[in-house]
């Protein structure tokens, strides 16, 4: 151990701290971009097709509405105070209902049996949503 400390020069510590800072740079950059003035938008999609967009930041009163699948199944969605949830659903596992309210960028509610996805995205004011990030 003593030999190791002798081997490690002060310049090394400096460069290692610098490298650590460089490596967290993209994280900080993306965080700043995400937390910008963009509005929160909940995108509801059914079988990979977008059916409805709700601007959560500007939404004030409580709203409850139904989204019907082609098979005649129903998800009841509730929007309240900048957050969104599936209030009730006719699916078997009820995972989507138990997810509860979501209100952060990137959070999702998924109802697999109905292929219904609600995702919260960040949107610049007066601009349509960008192309989704696709990862393999």
């Amino acid at each position: 151990m003593k030999a190791f400390i002798q081997m490690l020069k002060p310049g090394d510590l400096f460069i290692i701290v610098l490298l650590l800072m460089i490596s967290f740079l993209p994280l900080g950059y993306f965080y700043l971009q995400q937390s910008g003035d963009g509005d929160l938008v909940a995108v509801i999609s059914l079988e990979n097709e977008e059916v409805q967009e709700i601007n959560l930041s500007e939404h004030e009163e409580d709203t409850v509405f139904d989204v019907d699948t082609p098979d005649g199944e129903t998800n009841t969605i509730e929007v309240s105070d900048g957050s969104i949830r599936i209030k009730s659903a006719t699916c078997s596992d009820q995972v989507c209902v138990r997810t509860g309210f979501i209100d952060q960028v990137g959070q999702t509610i998924v109802c697999l049996p109905h292929q219904l996805v609600i995702e919260i995205q960040s949107q610049e004011p007066g601009q349509q949503s960008d192309v989704d990030v696709i990862s393999s």
Binding site: M7, L8, K9, P10, G11, D12, F14, I15, I16, L19, I22, S23
Partner: peptide, 19 residues
């Protein structure tokens, strides 16, 4: 002037490889 040993050089190499 930074007085860097092989350890610092090699750590730099590793990080920039990733970048």
């Amino acid at each position: 002037f930074l007085n860097i040993s092989l350890i610092g050089v090699s750590a730099t190499g590793a990080v920039f490889h990733n970048i």
